[in-house]
Design a protein around this nucleic acid. Structure first.
Length: 630
RNA sequence: GCCGACGUAGCUCAAUUGGCAGAGCACCCGCCUUGUAAGCGGGAGGUUACGAGUUCAAUUCUCGUCGUCGGCUCCA
């Protein structure tokens, strides 16, 4: 299991659906997520956060504590402190925490009134703000919305008192002094709002035993090995260059192959699913984005316009408006619906500098985009057709660690973040919800995550180091087609506005390749491997034979190179293994005389003296089937 | 964008309190001709990210710029 930090305390604003008859991983994940708050581990972590707060407040009596919840794998606490923390401070705090937990101090809960609470925390402005939230009943102590006014309680251990609803362990001694560790210092905005003051956050991890902690730290080390940024460099997939610019990846030849293979896959699948391919320009007049309504919502993350002869042009951050133009370029009958327009569109988004993250978050991207225009009666079938496509891809890649998230609007965002039409929001959200339930696809609902023009299903995945991303997306658009005056003639001969489904099952090339690198830890299946076969000669007496074999493989559509260097065979094999080449063909005098080859597979197994023709048949079969096995 | 840390050869990393910038791998040359994860020797490779400042002297200290990383915010 591997959750993003963000998802853990989402308990109140998310709901889980369609779990009854399905045995997928999401079910387990969702259940674990729901139950986390009832676990002993949760109490340990919550209590460790309080102990940490005590240690920090002893060090900085003038500091102001804010909130400190458990999160996945650990806990954090945010403070407003007179000076910035250093790594040395962290050591001190950790040392002091060990003393405190040894003290076997009891966690004592006291239920109090808002008035009493305000007295106790009179000199703690952040706590007062939380108490007011509790009093009004609008939000809990973490700022999450609540249904009614909750009971207000405090927890005390040793010298430290915190506003808290618990639960906690009995005494500090239950936090094993060798089973927790402070991990990092970070900045975090008060209440997660960038307009607020930036606080100092300390992240820690805590477990039931020393061994569990050790295991967790080991897992972190292992995860770093499959970080796509590290693998991307080692396997020569992509680079970033300072002079080219941040977030603008350069694809090396090996990366180019991955992209070509993904694109080939998408084209095959989309053709089979009845899509038509279109091509659209990378820049467009400002007018297009004014009409689409993107500009007010998106301007900040768009590259600034270039002005020529008094006309402003933007680099496109998305393809939809162009596809809308294609749909609207002629009269449409209900008979030709649904119209499915697909394009691997290249887009540019000016993500803030601090948001960039390897290939997972970039500024130039090639999107597996398509827009489906359909009537309302066709919606469910089309929407579920897209979900089916997702499942086909995920099965092919063996992706099972994901959550489908129904991203909804939030009432307070209407007219700001979201198109101001509550009726259509509720209607389309319900359409998606019903489609998912009818299709028996498990999903979670999360408020305030929709696109500005409609609800969507996002497929959430986690990078090797645990950061959460939307990989694929399937969105409903009930607003923009109207703005483009899109229509079709229905059976009754009247004009009707189509619904639009935006979808990107294979995400962007950037995020998909980043994800796949981590997913396979660089061990791509044969069809995706940039180099499928490396032919290794044992001495240079076989070089000519090796080259002949490589040529023959290439003529059969297999990506093969011969390693004719004068190194020892062992070194050549090592290099091929490090580059994670699935097949190594080894040829020495024996093979050359018998006109055969010896095969070493990436997993270490070997088969000696087989006819080349047999190997070619086998390799081609794996490639054509896009087999996951070697 | 915000808080913090970091930036040394193509890559991974060294360099005691400021005192001539090093190693392994990769690369080039030579030797070796080898049976399933590193054969041996030699050579070349650096304006220590960039720009200022302090100092007799700066990779080392200070400031700025750029970039990367851990988070926050935001997101395909």
């Amino acid at each position: 299991m591997f959750f993003g930090r963000q998802t853990v305390d989402d308990g109140q604003r998310s709901m889980v659906h369609g779990l009854s008859s399905v045995e997928r991983k999401e079910k387990k994940m969702a259940q674990i997520q729901e139950k986390y708050q009832d676990t002993y581990l949760y109490k340990i972590r919550h209590s460790a956060a309080h102990v940490m707060a005590q240690a920090v407040m002893e060090m900085f009596p003038d500091g102001k504590p804010t909130i400190g919840p458990p999160v996945e794998n650990g806990f954090y606490y945010d403070f407003d402190l007179p000076r910035n923390l250093t790594p040395e401070d962290l050591e001190q705090i950790e040392k002091r925490m060990r003393q405190i937990v040894q003290g076997k101090h009891e966690f004592k809960k006291t239920v109090i009134s808002a008035e009493e609470a305000k007295k106790i925390f009179a000199d703690q402005p952040y706590k007062l703000e939380l108490i007011e939230g509790l009093e009004k009943g609008g939000t809990d102590e973490y700022g999450q919305p609540l249904d009614g006014p909750p009971e207000i309680s405090i927890y005390q251990q040793d010298t430290f008192t915190d506003l808290c609803r618990g639960p906690h362990v009995q005494t500090t001694k239950e936090i094993k002094q060798d089973a927790f560790k402070l991990m990092s210092i970070a900045g975090a905005y008060w209440r997660g709002d960038e307009k607020n003051k930036m606080l100092q956050r300390i992240y820690g991890t805590a477990w039931e035993s020393k061994d569990q902690l050790k295991e967790y730290l080991h897992q972190l080390e292992e995860a770093k090995k499959r970080d796509h940024r590290k693998l991307g460099k080692e396997l020569e997939i992509f680079i970033f260059d300072e002079e080219v610019g941040p977030g603008l990846p350069l694809w090396l030849p090996n990366g180019g192959i991955l992209i070509e293979e993904l694109e080939k896959l998408a084209k095959e699948m989309e053709e089979a699913a009845g899509y038509s391919r279109v091509r659209t320009p990378n820049i467009t007049k400002e007018d297009l984005f004014i009409r689409s309504g993107h500009l007010p919502y998106y301007a900040e993350s768009m590259y600034p316009p270039m002005e020529l002869e008094g006309v402003k042009y933007y680099i496109k951050p998305m393809n939809c408006p162009m596809h809308h133009k294609i749909f609207g370029s002629k009269g449409r009958s209900y008979r030709e619906l649904p119209v499915r327009l697909a394009e691997y569109g290249t887009c540019y988004r000016y993500e803030k500098s601090g948001e960039l993250f390897g290939l997972m978050r970039v500024r130039s991207m090639q999107m597996n985009d398509a827009h489906i225009y359909c009537g309302e009666d066709q919606f469910e079938q089309e929407f579920m057709g897209v979900i089916a496509l997702y499942h086909k891809y995920f099965e092919l890649f063996g992706i099972d660690k994901y959550v489908m998230r129904l991203s909804l609007h939030a009432k307070q965002g209407l007219g700001k973040k979201y198109v101001d039409n509550e009726r259509l929001w509720l209607k389309t959200e319900d359409m998606v919800r019903r489609a998912m339930i009818n299709g028996d696809v498990p999903f979670v609902e999360v408020a305030d995550e929709a696109a500005f023009y409609g609800p969507k299903i996002d497929v959430q995945i986690w990078s090797a180091i645990g950061r959460e991303f939307s990989l694929a997306t399937n969105q409903v658009d009930f607003a923009v087609p109207e703005r483009f005056d899109l229509k079709f003639t229905n059976k009754e001969g009247a004009d009707e506005i189509p619904l639009c489904i935006h979808r990107a099952p294979l995400s962007t090339h950037e995020r998909m390749v980043g994800f796949l690198l981590e997913h396979y830890a660089g061990n791509f299946p044969v069809w995706l491997s940039p180099e499928q076969v490396r032919v290794i000669s044992i001495t240079d007496a076989q070089n000519e034979y090796a080259e002949k074999i490589a040529k023959q493989l290439r003529e059969n559509g297999i990506r093969a190179h011969a390693d004719l260097s004068s190194q020892r065979m062992n070194a050549k094999i090592r290099q091929a293994q490090l580059m994670k080449v699935p097949y190594m063909i080894v040829v020495g005098d024996n093979e050359m005389q018998a006109e055969q080859v010896s095969l070493r597979v990436r997993d270490g197994s070997q088969e000696n003296n087989i006819p080349l023709g047999d190997f070619i048949t086998r390799a081609k079969d794996k490639i054509v089937r896009r087999a996951s096995e070697l």
